[in-house]
């Protein structure tokens, strides 16, 4: 029993990271129909940048994270404006190729700017809480809480603000949104800015819980897409549930079935969900 509870807790922290990656992907996908493959590399960039600002530039960690999030927002806007906007009218395959090109560029830049060694963001949080044989490192707790706070504020933003309502309007019916006077030129910029900011947060979490190393970007974005399918394309509650399900499934698979095949089991669950509920766990039929 202790083992089961421990395994679920193990999965929640990584699940929180998956949720943040997927939130960015799902808003981009839901509104613009773009499979933004470079999202993982951009998240990596954010994590590396935070580490650089905190260590080399000497900023306090929270200030470094805030600065990296601001850079992330600008980067997201630039990506939409310079790379995706020119191919908006074309087939969605073209946008996908642009995404691949972006991935290579960002990966190459990361390597040039931050080197080839794995980057770990040092938080100095090393206490461990223990409750009835179940252990929770302090850091993991904060990551789960931070993810929850980000998810809540994202939900509030989309549900309660005018910009958020405009984003939802475009997602549901682009033509009608134009008729109602929504500025459809600005919406994609905001969406990319926000989703990249969320990606940067995910990168910071990966960098402080674990590490950012070459190749992690691809791993992150693949997991993010898996969450998208699990939860339902374009659905924010879907991304939250899907991310948690994926994180916990992986932990349980590694703990109770086979650590070598844990990813395979996670994908099998994803494909099974797709077969039984093609619209995803939370998607609308």
């Amino acid at each position: 029993m202790i083992e089961l509870v421990q395994q679920i807790l193990n999965g929640l922290a990584i699940g929180g990271v998956y949720v943040l990656v997927a939130l960015g992907l799902t808003t981009v996908f839901g509104i613009l129909g773009i499979a933004h493959f470079a999202h993982g590399s951009v998240s990596m960039f954010g994590g590396c940048l935070t580490c650089f600002l905190a260590v080399s530039a000497g900023l306090p960690l929270l200030a470094a994270i805030a600065a990296a999030m601001a850079v992330g927002f600008v980067l997201g806007v630039a990506i939409e404006l310079l790379a995706y906007r020119p191919v908006r009218g074309a087939s969605h395959i073209n946008a996908f190729i642009v995404a691949l090109g972006l991935t290579m560029m960002v990966e190459g830049l990361n390597l040039q700017l931050f080197g080839h060694e794995q980057v770990v963001i040092l938080t100095g949080l090393s206490r461990v809480f223990e409750i009835g044989g179940v252990t929770i490192p302090e850091l993991r707790l904060y990551v789960i809480l931070a993810a929850a706070a980000l998810i809540a504020s994202m939900t509030l933003f989309v549900e309660r603000t005018r910009t958020g309502q405009a984003i939802r309007a475009v997602a549901e019916n682009r033509e009608a949104a134009i008729l109602m006077g929504v500025n459809v030129q600005a919406i994609p910029l905001i969406v990319f800015g926000i989703s990249t900011t969320l990606g940067v947060c995910a990168g910071v979490m990966v960098g402080s819980l674990f590490a950012i190393a070459p190749g992690i970007g691809e791993w992150l974005v693949v997991k993010g897409f898996a969450v998208l399918i699990l939860g339902g394309l374009g659905s924010i509650p879907g991304a939250v549930i899907g991310g948690m399900v994926l994180g916990v499934t992986e932990a349980l698979a590694a703990g109770f079935v086979s650590s070598a095949y844990k990813d395979l089991i996670a994908f099998a669950v994803m494909i099974a969900v797709l077969l039984m509920r093609p619209q995803g766990l939370m998607g609308k039929a």
Partner: peptide, 11 residues
């Protein structure tokens, strides 16, 4: 690429 080994270690 794994960095979270807590499931294996818990087992």
């Amino acid at each position: 690429k794994d960095r979270d080994m807590t499931p294996q270690l818990t087992k």
